[in-house]
Amino acid sequence: MGVFENLIYVNDKGEVASHIWIKWIHEGTKEANTNAEKQENVLLGETTRHCAKCLNLNGCYFPLDNMPEQPLHPNCHCYKTIIDKPIAGRTAQAVCYIQKIRDYAFVKEAKKKFFNSNGYDIMDSEYIRKTIEDVALKKYVGGDFKLGMLDKHGQRITIRVELPGRTAQGKPLSFCTGWMIYPGGKIVLTTPATELSKK
């Protein structure tokens, strides 16, 4: 990766994304880096006056022009701090578990048909998984994603990913993937094929 590639990101439509990034802060509570900790936050929200959604956003990174509304609710005392733009593989990571491809995408009828008809089969699961991770990470740090649903489980984003074309036309296979944002620049794939955006 070149030095400037990390400073300016231009999406497929030629739009320059914000290079100002922020960290969502919910003071006085720890960041939920694991699923267990996220769950603890929900329980904490139940027993205290803290909002479980805000607790789950604590420590998450967003571009300034593509973040959940702040304040999120009346009496929300969350704030944001400017951070260095996340760097793929260093201060940002994407995780796509193999099960989401091998045991879900290639099992569900419509999804299996979609991948099969575009030249991919279950033997390509690891290749698809790795490619989705790499492309999504690059787009996340480029701010090239759409904010989706925010609920007890966390903030979802939709990222358009491309796989090399394997049909006669040879055009790249472009599709929408759904991710959950975790603190510290981490995103985890929820579903390998999703809506354009889930507000």
């Binding site: 497929d12 979609f114 358009r160 999703t194 809506e195 889930k198």
Partner: peptide, 13 residues
């Protein structure tokens, strides 16, 4: 319109 595939899947708690 850009040729990107998406689904009409529904996600729900």
């Amino acid at each position: 319109e850009d040729g990107t595939w998406y689904t009409t899947d529904i996600e729900c708690e």
